[in-house]
Design a protein around this nucleic acid. Structure first.
Lengths: 397, 397
DNA sequence: ATACATAGTATATATCTTGAAAAAAGTCAC
DNA sequence: GTGACTTTTTTCAAGATATATACTATGTAT
């Protein structure tokens, strides 16, 4: 009903600049010649715009490559040290802060443990700010060189200037994390749900590469999903889309920690699995416990596979994705041994047509992906709205 | 990961033309002055582009309106007779063909009954082609004036040149409806699932007006949903997104006509409700039967409300829409009497934050909306890619 | 009548993309 | 080595666009 919106002739240049930069970022070192084919732009425009990008130091030359008896092609690539992105993972047990260059090489890392139940906002804010200082100091990167800070948090994030967060497990209700952090740093902030940042990491660098319609299912203690529509993370009206874990799969069934009954999370969440198997809950050993359950072929696992398959089938029926990525530590533990059974269970609970076009694969990134994905929020903005302030261009020289 | 794509300076004009036309279409008669505010374009550009549109006869002047002591504003509006759109509804019991002008006034209508089980492709194609001829003859509209034909069909439509259709209830498996129709007409064809076209009708002209993130839930004999993301119908990788009726709500529960067990449709589909109430199935009386069940307060209805609420809650948790529209004849029958209870059931099965931002309302359009929505497929294309062939401009004069 | 207010248009300007021509930077045959 | 050839990249002129500003059109108020 309302989509297009474009105006002046300057937007054209800005848009084409973004198109070229994006191509260079995702395809890697490329010649101007190839860029004309990749983007559909004329050679002249490619030359013009890459000229701008070069003089702004956003991209750099990266060697030559022979051509059949003609002038060799000059390879271009994004300047990895044009700027840096910081990714923050606020998890149940830790606050992790990582600094990446534009090639997503980790240049520094800081981690702070959180006591169970010790999730006071002030503490988390202190850790984040300390972490930022630490990674900057360790890497020798100046704050001016940082393009922004991406933060993955649990719960629902209302995007806006304050970045209000609702996280039941943390006891956070309408916590303005963005506003609080801005008292300690002036860098641009991008706050999002951790499942979504991890999903974006899998989409950009992991098992979701190249898909335009995908769902990344994340199964750990909690259960969530990151929904990719037309190549972009879908957030919904208030950024809370993707609460797959609390969809009802068995109306009136097991009680979930959200208070509801019959939630998917109450069956396939890691804690729920252990509880159903009659095992004591202990965050220190739960990973080993789950692995042992899977190894021994417990009937609880068979049941879990059935619920997981049905849950995935629901996603496929609703979203018709071309790819489903199963991730999260519990998801990977189950998937590594039982992927075939999971697929079978999904097939049995799904319409044949959408099932046949959806490939179900395992995530390829580890738990670090939350911070990596948070950093991609920064990169996403950089690729879209990079307008090369002269100050930065000079500073980066 | 991949979004922007724009090129030449001519695209600018095309885009701004679409922006203005869209504004005029949805806002109604408007002056150039107001259009500058609505679109953000400069007065000069509005003047230029509307000048083009006027001389192409796509829009026309529509009277004056006073301004406080100054030159009166000239109102502009879409020329309702610039072209026409045909909408086709291929349903279980009928093929309905309607012809609309650009104001969506119905100018002619043709209907053909289908016998139960009599859904042979050739028959349906014949009806559609005959209907097109009939509405053209009745309205006196020449084929050249028709912008296109939108067709809403049951089942899954693989968009493509052939418009392959998979409709189990019709016994259609990979039927190339588009290719078959093209043998009888050379007009542009737009084929889509009937639930999606009806959803688009509610979005444009009904209870969904103005919402960018919405789900239109359609409950009749079957159960489906039309998902609106960022103002546009979401179709997924193969146009089969929105198969809400076959998501599992009670794993291992009632058998559904799709062959699966525990599908939502097996609980809230009209036939399923009657079956659960122990009533005989008869398509002629089912609407009255359902109304009577609702009126008498049958316990089956209470249960149905519970399932429906949970199903809606699942949609809200996954999509975080700002609006949910409940439509379809069974949905409306239930909703008219039980909306409060349905909302309560949804609230109990939904996370509080996304529930609080989603309004649940009833559809405002009747069953005719399938054909109307099919016609909007034509209009959508017209608004986006209208490039005013001189031939058409002359013909319309 | 004249002043004033508002709507809409014409003109000049700065940008933009592009196709064609020119330049650059190699290879290859001799 | 040198000239012909190939391929990539840049330059340049042409065509198209949105916008700001100045200007015209068309009313009302006094």
């Amino acid at each position: 009903m309302a989509r297009p919106e474009r105006r002046t002739v300057r937007d054209l240049r800005k848009g084409n600049r973004a198109v070229l930069l994006r191509a260079l970022y995702f395809v890697g070192p490329t010649s101007r010649h190839e860029l004309t084919a990749l983007t559909g732009l004329s050679a002249a425009t490619v030359s013009n715009v890459t000229g701008d990008l070069l003089s702004d130091n956003v991209i750099v030359e990266a060697g030559l490559v022979d051509s059949d008896g003609g002038r060799p092609r000059v390879l271009l690539r994004v300047n990895p040290v044009y700027g840096y992105a910081i990714g923050v993972d606020v998890g149940e047990t830790h606050v992790r802060v990582e600094l990446f260059d534009l090639d997503m090489n980790e240049k520094a890392k800081a981690e702070f443990a959180l006591r169970p139940g010790g999730h006071e906002v002030e503490l988390v804010v202190r850790h984040i700010l300390a972490g930022i200082e630490a990674v900057l100091a360790d890497s020798g990167v100046a704050p001016e060189q940082v393009l922004g800070i991406g933060i993955g948090v649990p719960g629902i994030v209302e995007s806006g200037p304050d970045a209000l967060i609702h996280a039941q497990t943390f006891g956070w209700d309408s916590v303005p994390l963005g506003a609080l952090l801005r008292e300690g740093t002036s860098l641009p902030l991008y706050v999002d749900n951790g499942a979504k940042t991890m999903g974006q990491a899998e989409l950009w660098f992991g098992a979701g590469r190249g898909s335009r319609n995908a769902v990344i299912a994340l199964i750990g203690s909690g259960v969530g999903a990151s929904i990719i529509t037309d190549g972009v993370t879908y957030r919904g009206a208030n950024s809370s889309a993707g609460e797959w874990g609390h969809t009802k799969i068995a109306l009136g069934g097991r009680t979930c920690r959200c208070g509801g009954r019959g939630c998917l999370e109450a069956y396939i969440g890691a804690e729920a699995i252990l509880e159903r198997a009659g095992l004591p809950l202990d965050t220190a050993t739960e990973q080993a416990q789950l692995a042992e359950l899977v190894r021994s072929g417990s009937p609880v696992i068979d049941e879990t596979v059935e619920y997981l398959g049905a849950g995935l089938a629901n996603l496929i029926n609703l979203f018709n994705p071309e790819r489903i990525v199963v991730g999260g530590w519990a998801g990977l533990t189950l998937g590594h041994h039982l992927l075939t059974k999971i697929k079978k269970a999904a097939a049995e609970n799904c319409l044949t047509q959408p099932f046949s076009t959806a490939s179900i694969v395992l995530g390829r990134l580890g738990p670090d992906a939350v911070a990596l994905g948070a950093a991609t929020l920064v990169i996403e903005e950089f690729l879209l709205n990079n307008t090369a302030s002269p100050a930065r261009a000079a500073a980066a020289l």
